[in-house]
């Protein structure tokens, strides 16, 4: 990552994405982003910015450009293949309807 957006340059701090777990048992959810000079400060800034109202019990911060994202233009080939594969879902199996505990 030679040109990481999270790496500070001059007096500009890098961009970090923030994920917050709102309570135990739930996943971390993307909350937004912020600027910080390094990971330690990014965590602290995230705590102050995204959990002022008890919104979280755990925080992840990730350099924004460390996230690899799928290409929105290849939506069809990437995400439409599962369509039509009804047999992956319990609702596909209708003959057993009415049988208890199945």
């Amino acid at each position: 990552m030679s040109e990481s957006t999270a790496e500070p340059t001059g007096n500009t701090w890098g961009l970090w994405e923030v994920f917050v777990r709102s309570s135990r048992g739930l996943s971390h959810v993307h909350a937004g982003s912020l600027h910080a000079p390094d990971a330690a400060m990014a965590l602290r800034n995230a705590r102050d910015l995204y959990t002022r109202r008890n919104e979280g019990v755990s925080i992840w911060v990730v350099p924004a450009d460390a996230i690899a994202a799928s290409d929105p233009d290849s939506k069809g080939s990437f995400f439409e293949s599962p369509q039509g594969k009804d047999y992956r879902h319990a609702t596909y199996y209708t003959k057993s309807e009415g049988v208890k505990h199945l």
Partner: peptide, 12 residues
Amino acid sequence: EANASATRITPG
């Protein structure tokens, strides 16, 4: 639901 969980607010 995910959005709700990311912005859940409580007074504590």
